[in-house]
Design a protein around this nucleic acid. Sequence first.
DNA 1: ATAAATTTGTGCGTATGTATC
DNA 2: GGATACATACGCACAAATTTA
Lengths: 360, 360
Amino acid sequence: MEKKYQIVIDAVEKWINIGKYQANDKLPTESELMNMFNVSRHTVRKSLSDLETKGVVYRIQGGGTFVAEEKRGTNAFTDNQIIAVLTTHINDYIFPSIISGIESELSRKSISLTLSSTQNNEDVERKELLKLLNGGINGLIVEPTKSAFNLKNFDLYDELIKSGLPIITINSHPAQLNIPYFVMDDFRGGQVATEYLLHHNHTNILGIFKTDDQQGIDRMNGFTDEMQRSQLTSNAANLLFQSGDSKQRISQHLLDCLSSSNRPTAIICYNDQVAVITYNLAVSLGMRIPQDLSIIGFDNSTLSHSFGIQLTSIDHPKDKMGHDAAGLMIKMLDNPTKDYSTNSEIYRPIIIEGDSVVKI
Amino acid sequence: MEKKYQIVIDAVEKWINIGKYQANDKLPTESELMNMFNVSRHTVRKSLSDLETKGVVYRIQGGGTFVAEEKRGTNAFTDNQIIAVLTTHINDYIFPSIISGIESELSRKSISLTLSSTQNNEDVERKELLKLLNGGINGLIVEPTKSAFNLKNFDLYDELIKSGLPIITINSHPAQLNIPYFVMDDFRGGQVATEYLLHHNHTNILGIFKTDDQQGIDRMNGFTDEMQRSQLTSNAANLLFQSGDSKQRISQHLLDCLSSSNRPTAIICYNDQVAVITYNLAVSLGMRIPQDLSIIGFDNSTLSHSFGIQLTSIDHPKDKMGHDAAGLMIKMLDNPTKDYSTNSEIYRPIIIEGDSVVKI
DNA sequence: ATAAATTTGTGCGTATGTATC
DNA sequence: GGATACATACGCACAAATTTA
C-alpha cells in the first residue's frame, strides 16, 4: 500500500510541476493539508520535511511552506553526466586527436568531459585516481601509465571498478583488470613494419624501442618475431631506451650504430617522434633519406610529414579510437550492469606508405 | 536553550569524531538513546533522521543505525575546483597547445578542467553556456565564437559574470564584456608580416583573410595599414573568405590570382592552414616556393613545418597563453572580488623566419 | 504599535507495521 | 518463531516566528 506521506509528497510535487504553485508561492498550511488528505499533522510534516530535504520547498516558521526556486546549481552536475579522461599526455603527439574524438562523441549526448594528464608518472596518476574515487564522475576513459610494468595503482583501479564506475582503457590494457579496452595490435604492427622492409629487400634492420611501455615491447616483439621467421638476426637489443632517457643518450647510441662498419640499411622506430630524431641525426651525418637509410615510424602522426619527405609509418586510429571508446562509454552509462569486457577493440595496423623507405 | 534533538546529534557526531564509533559500526538503538538522553523516541528519531540526511549515519530497518562511510563524493566537487574550458576547436591546430598549457598550470593546484568545443557555432556555444549557468563550475576560460560579430550570446555571458563566475577570454576579447583577456595583437601581426615582406622588396603582395573572425579582420587591417603607409595598393579585397567557405572556393579564387598577369610575388595568409593550401596549390601550378612565390603564415603551428620547407610564420604564444590564462584564473579564484580587467595580456607578434620568403 | 490568530518547530505518548537477527 | 529495531501513523501540548486584525 502506498504510504500516506508519499501520497502527499506526490500531490505537492504534481501541483508544482503543473504550475498550480510556482516558485515562492505559498503552499497550503499543514492544517489544510491534514484536512485535504485526511492524515495527521505528523504525516504532513514528514512529507514536507522530505520535500524540504529534496530542495522542492522551503519552510518559514510562522510564515508557511513555499515552493523553492528552480534548483539550478546546487548539484548541477547530477543531471549533466561527466566522463573523466586521463591520459599520459595532452598536447603531445596523437593525444589531441584521441581527445577530440572522445569529445565530439560525448558532446552529442551532452556529456561533459574532464581532462587530466599523468605525464606518465604513477604518482600523478595515483593522485588523479584518488580524486576520481572522491566521486562526482560517471565514467573514466584512461590510458594507464608505464603500461609495461604491473599496475602500481591497481588497488585504486580495482576500487573504482568495484564502486561500479564504468572504466575503459585506451592504448594499453592491463591484464589484471577485466574491463573493455581499445588498443592497437602493436605486436602485429611490429610485424607489418618488418614485413614491409623485408619486401623491400632490407635484411640489416635496426629497431629502436622503448622498454617501459607495453606498446614499445609489443612492437619490438613483433619486429624480432618477424625477423626470426625470416631467419635474420634482429638488431634491437642495443637500442632500447626508457622514458627517462635523454635525447642525447639515444642519439649517442644511434650514432654508434650508424657509424659502425655493419650499419643498418633500415631502421624501425618506436614512434614518429623517435623517427624524427633518427632522421635529423642521419641527415646531420650526411646521409640521405631514403637512399642511404630507410626509416619507418609508428602512429602516422602529424610529425610524419614534418620534414622534407613523407615518413612511412604504421597508422594509429587516433580520433576513431576516441570515438569508439566514447561510444562504448555511452552504452555503459545507459546500462551499467551489463558486462562489456567483450566490446574491446584491437585495431589492425595498416602501413601508410611515404617516401622514407627505398627498395634495395 | 539547546534543543534536545540537537544535543543528541552533537553527542553522536562527537562519538564518531573521537573514533568511539567508526565507519559501519552499529550505534546504540533508538531505545538506548532514549534512556541515555532521557528524551522521547520521537526526539531520538528526529536526531537520527537529521544525521541521516546529513550523510553521517545510515539506518537499516530492523537492523540498526550505523556510522556512514567517510562521505567522499556526496559533493566531491565542492572541494575540487573545476574550471571549464570552452574553445572553438580542440584538436585542430594551436588548441592542443593552449589546452595543455592551461591543464599543466591548473593541475599544479589540483584544479580540474572540463573541456568542450563549440565548433565555432553560436548555437552550440549557447548550449554550453546554459550548461555552465547551471553551476558546479568555479571559473571559465573561453574562446568566444565568431568573434567579429556582436556577441550573440551576450546575455548568457552577462548572466554568468553577474553570478560572480570568474571568466577569461582567449584569442578574442569582446568589447562589451569587461573581463580579462589574453590575445595576440593581430593588427600588429599583420603589420609585422607586411613589413617583413617589404624589407624583402616585395611590393605586389596578396592577402588572404577570414572575415568572420576578429583575428582575420585585425590581421587584414594590419596588412592594409602597412601597405598604405608605404603607399602601395593592398591586394586583399578579392581574397576574403568565411568559415563556411569550401576549400574549393578559396582555391578557385587563389588560382585566378596566381594565373593573372599581375600575379603577386608574395602572399600573406590568414594562418598556417591557409598557407598550406596556398603552398600546395602553388606547387601544383608548377611554382617553386620561395623562388617564384613567397608565403607567410600565422600561428607558427606544427603545420608550419609540414612540407618541404619551413614556413615563415608569425608566432602564436599557444601554451604560454594557456599558462598565463590559467595563472590569472587561479588568482581570481583566490580573491574573486578584485577587478582583474587590467590583468589582460596582449602578446606582441614575433616573426619566425623559415624558408618560404625570398628577397627579390 | 499591540494583541490575537495563524503557522511552523519542538517534544511526548502510543500503536502498529515490517525487516533483521 | 520470537525478540529486536527501525518505519509509519495518529493525537496532544506548547514554543517561536510571522501575519493579520
